[in-house]
């Protein structure tokens, strides 16, 4: 009986003293944090992907609160949660956000193993950054995809995968959150974070080559040669050619697909359109253009 009593008293008093110390320490070293930061962080996805440009969701929440104190949430966007999450954040902070259109990552290179012949063989650490230090790399194109998968390694959402047949990365539109990590990881800037478009439909120039036409053609059979045909055919002035490379402004593009048919190099691609009813009229024309000595 006595032993039990002593044990209870000793343990109990140790417990009490420890509790007291903890209590005092908790008071003394308490960190006062704006409680809104915690609230904001709760509605964020919590993937800590860094796509927003801040170190993790906590950092982004802090930035949101700070920005709200200054009076505007402009320029802050959680690319993962997108509009709905930003609205929730704005609610918590008593602000309003402008609607932002959803975006998606687009690999602007179509230089598959067939269309872009390998002229050298790369041997070394499997990293695009390493290959980039060797100039144009395995192919003669100094602007296209290097194929070592730095973007795949950068993606937190498993939304981008290398296709072993083409040697190019493919974006899973469902999973892609447009966080931009792949775009930053690419040493050649091949990946563009682009407006998703109406019904997810997009028309994109799948080329990043800024060399002159003749050289591009030597390096790759589907590269943009800056022939301006697409510019001429576009009624909406959505296409510009800058530094030997055509670019379609997603905001101006009306998805008419005329440029796609016009491109002699088949460098312009339309995504997520229903299959064409009669593909016959376009194919002979495309073939004819290819053989012509532009």
């Amino acid at each position: 009986m006595n032993v039990i009593l002593i044990a209870v008293i000793v343990l109990g008093s140790i417990g009490l003293v420890a509790a007291l110390i903890l209590f005092l320490a908790g008071k003394k070293f308490a960190v006062h944090e704006d409680e809104r930061i915690g609230q904001v962080q709760e509605v964020l996805p919590g993937a800590n992907c860094g796509g927003c440009g801040f170190p993790g969701c906590g950092g982004f929440a802090g930035a949101c609160v700070k920005a709200a104190d200054k009076g505007s949430l402009e320029g802050l966007l959680c690319p993962v949660g997108g509009q709905p999450v930003m609205e929730q954040v704005a609610d918590i902070l008593g602000m309003k956000v402008e609607a932002a259109a959803p975006k998606v990552a687009v690999v602007r290179c179509n230089g598959t193993c067939e269309s872009r012949p390998r002229i050298a063989e790369f041997d070394g650490a499997q990293s695009c950054k390493v290959q980039q230090m060797l100039g144009s790399g395995e192919t003669a194109c100094a602007y296209g995809c290097l194929g070592c998968g730095d973007c795949v390694a950068a993606c937190q959402f498993d939304a981008i995968r290398m296709n072993p047949e083409t040697g190019l990365p493919e974006v899973d539109e469902e999973k892609c959150t447009a966080c931009g990590a792949c775009s930053k990881a690419c040493p050649r800037g091949v990946i563009e974070i682009r407006l998703k478009g109406l019904k997810n439909r997009r028309v994109v120039v799948l080329c990043n080559n800024k060399d002159k036409g003749a050289q591009t053609r030597k390096a790759c059979s589907v590269g943009c040669i800056a022939c301006q045909k697409c510019v001429k055919v576009c009624k909406f002035e959505a296409i510009t050619v800058d530094a030997n490379l055509a670019y379609i402004d997603a905001e101006k593009c009306k998805l008419c697909r005329k440029c796609e048919d016009e491109c002699p190099q088949n460098a312009i691609h339309a995504f997520n359109f229903p299959p064409k009813k009669s593909p016959l009229p376009t194919s002979p024309k495309g073939g004819g253009d290819k053989s012509s000595d532009y």
């Binding site: 390998r118 002229i119 050298a120 063989e121 790369f122 041997d123 070394g124 390493v130 230090m133 060797l134 790399g137 395995e138």
Partner: peptide, 8 residues
């Protein structure tokens, strides 16, 4: 010949 390229 396809030369091998690698960093030093």
């Amino acid at each position: 010949m396809k030369p091998v390229i690698s960093l030093s």
